[in-house]
Amino acid sequence: MNTIEGWFAGRLPDDWFEGTPEVTVDRDEIVVVGTLPAPEVGGEKGDAEDTDGARAAESGRIKRWREDTRGKRMRIADEAQRRFGAKVAWGAVCGDTRELFTNLSVPVMTRLRQPERRVLDTLVDANVARSRSEALAWCVRLVGQHEDEWISRLREAVSAVYEVRDEGPASDAGAG
């Protein structure tokens, strides 16, 4: 558990989530997603109407939690932003429903050659995306979904590099 995860584990009220919330951190944002208890709904399992009802109940449970905790979440987010220098976004999982609340959409500059631009333009022309920016985000999500295991292994490798680097001798750059 890293410092930020530990801070949230200690700072969040114990009755907010089932278990420890998932805390994801990048350069710009901290996203905290907790699991809420699934509401009891009647009906036969597997029935399409029952599934729709369960999803509606789960979404309603998330909305209620979001409204009921708004003030405390904002205060905790302000504390975390001062402490860690990153915006905080919140989310919740309830049953099969996952929702994030007002998380950042950060612009990223990229240079693409014509073959890559043509891919994006094809997605726009086919109404898969409204713009090149949206098409690129769609491509990144698709790679993330289909290459999840590889991306996870890559993140672990990068983390190991940071750990080894931090264990090394202190840099004397600028000394002398």
Rank of each mutant, 00 (worst) to 15 (best):
E58R: 05
E40H: 10
T20S: 12
T69M: 10
G53H: 10
E44A: 09
D28F: 15
R73N: 08
K45T: 03
P37T: 11
G71L: 06
T24A: 15
A56E: 05
K63N: 01
E58W: 10
A57Y: 05
D78G: 08
V25G: 15
G43K: 07
W65T: 06
V33F: 12
R70T: 04
D47Y: 05
R61T: 13
E49C: 04
V23S: 07
E44C: 00
E49Q: 13
V25P: 15
G46R: 01
W65G: 06
A77Q: 08
E40D: 14
I30V: 15
R66K: 09
G43E: 05
A48Y: 03
I76V: 15
G46M: 01
A80E: 12
R27A: 15
R27H: 06
D50T: 15
G42H: 12
T35Y: 00
D47K: 08
E29K: 04
A57H: 10
V23E: 11
R70C: 01
S59T: 06
L36Y: 04
V32T: 09
E79T: 09
V32G: 10
A54E: 07
E22T: 12
E18I: 14
D68F: 02
D68Q: 11
D68H: 03
G46A: 02
E58N: 11
G60F: 02
D28S: 14
A54F: 07
G19I: 14
R61N: 11
V41P: 10
S59D: 09
G43N: 05
R55M: 12
I30Q: 10
D78P: 02
G19Q: 03
E22C: 02
P39D: 13
P37Y: 03
V33Q: 11
V23I: 14
E44K: 01
I30H: 07
K63P: 00
V33Y: 13
A48W: 06
P21W: 04
M74H: 07
G46K: 01
T35P: 01
A77L: 06
R55T: 07
G34W: 02
D78W: 06
S59H: 02
E40Q: 09
R73L: 08
T69D: 05
R75T: 12
E29R: 08
D26A: 12
G53T: 08
E40R: 13
E40F: 11
I30G: 11
L36Q: 11
P39K: 14
R64A: 04
A38F: 00
T35V: 12
M74S: 11
G19K: 01
K72N: 03
V41E: 13
R61I: 01
D47C: 04
D28K: 13
T51W: 04
E22H: 14
R66Q: 13
A56K: 00
V33S: 13
P37V: 08
V31I: 15
G60S: 07
M74I: 12
G60K: 04
R64G: 00
E67M: 01
